[in-house]
Design a protein around this nucleic acid. Structure first.
Lengths: 345, 345
DNA sequence: GTCTTGACTGGAAACGTATCCAATAGGTCC
DNA sequence: GGACCTATTGGATACGTTTCCAGTCAAGAC
């Protein structure tokens, strides 16, 4: 900057004003400075600026696995807002590992990000607290962590699971397998709760042998799905609590030689691209992941100014053809919820 | 930092040495400093550190669309290496938009990242040059940009397309539709070139009406696929040059009421999760995207020290059941390339 | 002519750290 | 005892900005 000032024959203050676009500077001076900067290939350094301004314009995003379409969509939404707001995104993938998450929290704190959007593991309470006390805006996505008073942006997990379950119950299914996530994540707990409520509302009892919890990851999901299908009296329908579990469930079903929906009905969370591509296309509940990401970026930056409320996005069911009516022989009329017309989006 | 020094009764130099883990400091002093830091909830600031050290430990990653599984896998690989190397990743999504790409380049330059990994649009030559001249390590992924002397990490695009084409030719197909990307991306050009070479090697002519180029995005791909299927004499097989195009192709095929592979064979680039999930599972060529991302992070940081060579990853064909032999009635023996055993990975 | 106003400019100080230099203390070796 | 070495420490300086303050100058108000 000093070199530019010298070459342009002005003071450093003037150069700063030219590039930071604040304060007034004569048009003629401005062009002279810009010419000098171009000649020297000078680019302002965000480091100096951020140090002085005590703000970085960066926000941290901690997801589980960015190669999972759900997080990818969400991240894409975050990026969209971030760009609009002149912010940049530092991406972290925790893999649901507590230790990794802690390292990333510390990292983002050191980086002095303006905000953190995280899909929290539910642990590391002290790290979160300490980050918040340092004045970093934090927003939890998809899950809540009790006892921290940190706002979150959620989907209506319980409602989504309940809708799926009620749909299957309405079709006459009673032995409905539930392939869910661990209870220590609110996502896992609330979805399972939705499943149970639907049964309770219908005055029905849940067969605990048909409820299996597994990590929200590919490795163990397949084995769990197989176990579910191997039950003494196998389920007539299956609910998978996220897209990874759904993938595992369908793979397991196929490997068993079963046909959907003739032998078993399968529905799941998350409207991934392949849901409408497989045969038959699968009935899902959709979380508006892109929009959630977009809102998340806006929300996390707004936390500083006033009280930001947690937000819950509605979940919509998209009925396709992966579930059939059980006791009625002709194919069920599928006029509950939104019909998918099959056109690509 | 000053506060910590004072509370611990030491100099600021000592505090710095404690946290930067360089130089020697008496164990007893160290614990005293750490205690003081904890009491004050002090966290070192990367801003000050980076400014002084003139290095940020950040690397920039510019992809097209992080919700696309291919980029997601790649990014996951980058993150993996980055974590290992103590680096952090600033994520940018260009959407193949030239102006957006330019903004992101400028941004990353200002942020003084240690390196940039980018899937370049092919434009913005001056911006790239200027960034490189500023001493930023740059690595192009998936595509090359001629005239810049910037190294790249590629997959064997031509070879992959050629393999797919030869496979279909060997099955007896002659009217092979090609749904490809724009020629200004090397990815698009080289894949199409592979397709043409396979024909040329077999002494066959390409029917230009069966070659359609479209942007590597969802919006136009479906229409292009439809156009291909609407040809006066429709193709008996289809090659899609990436996963988005493949998705569009399959959707179009389904909407036409055609059955794969009975009515038309379909093969494509990228082994996305759904490729083995649809019925029939689709034959693909696999780019090792995760590994490419992992290497990319290592490579981009190594550019500073010595001459880093461009690198080409092999592409492997995974034969599934989406293509059938044309003139022989019994299903073709599918013993070329790797057999997919169907177990989840 | 003086006063006021506003646009513009120069430069010092500060942001939070790393690093160099000098200094002290304690030990080892002859 | 003296020379020498090592481990440890304190603090000044610099990194590249922003911002505040003081100052100059020209135009208008009276």
């Amino acid at each position: 900057m000093r070199d530019v000032a010298e070459l342009a024959g002005v003071g450093i203050g003037t150069v700063s004003r030219v590039f930071s676009k604040v304060g007034s500077v004569a048009p003629e001076t401005r062009t002279r400075v810009e010419a000098a900067a171009k000649k020297l290939n000078y680019r302002p350094s965000a480091l100096g600026r951020d140090l002085k301004r005590r703000t970085t314009n960066n926000i941290g995003l901690i997801v589980t696995d960015i190669s999972n379409n759900f997080y990818g969509e969400f991240a894409q939404g975050v990026l969209s807002s971030a760009k609009e707001l002149g912010r940049h995104v530092i991406l972290c993938a925790s893999g649901e590992d507590v230790e990794t998450e802690r390292e990333y929290i510390d990292l983002l704190v050191e980086q002095r990000v303006d905000g953190i959007i995280a899909f929290p593991t539910g642990e590391n309470l002290d790290a979160w607290r300490s980050a918040r006390d340092l004045g970093i805006n934090i927003l939890f996505a998809d899950r809540e962590v009790p006892g921290l008073g940190i706002p979150s942006i959620l989907a209506d997990n319980m409602g989504g699971a309940r809708q799926l379950t009620e749909y299957l119950l309405a079709l006459g299914h009673r032995r409905i397998g539930y392939l869910g996530g661990p209870l220590h994540l609110t996502t896992g707990r609330l979805r399972e709760e939705g499943y149970r409520r639907a049964f309770a509302d219908g005055g029905l009892a849940v067969d605990e042998s048909l409820v299996i919890r597994t990590r929200f990851t590919r490795d163990t999901a397949y084995a769990s799905a197989m176990r579910l299908l191997d039950a003494a009296v196998p389920p007539t329908a299956l609910i998978a609590a996220n897209n990874i579990l759904g993938e595992a469930a369908l793979t397991a079903v196929r490997d068993k030689g079963l046909i959907v929906p003739r032998d078993i009905s399968v529905v799941m969370f998350d409207d991934v691209p392949w849901a409408k591509l497989v045969q038959p296309p699968v009935t899902v509940v959709v979380q508006p992941s892109w929009q959630m990401g977009q809102s998340a970026a806006r929300m996390v930056l707004a936390i500083g100014s006033g009280t930001t409320q947690s937000q819950t996005s509605p979940i919509e069911m998209v009925i396709r053809r992966s579930a059939r009516a059980l006791h009625i022989d002709p194919p069920a009329r599928q006029d509950i919820g939104t019909e998918d017309n099959g056109t690509p989006t």
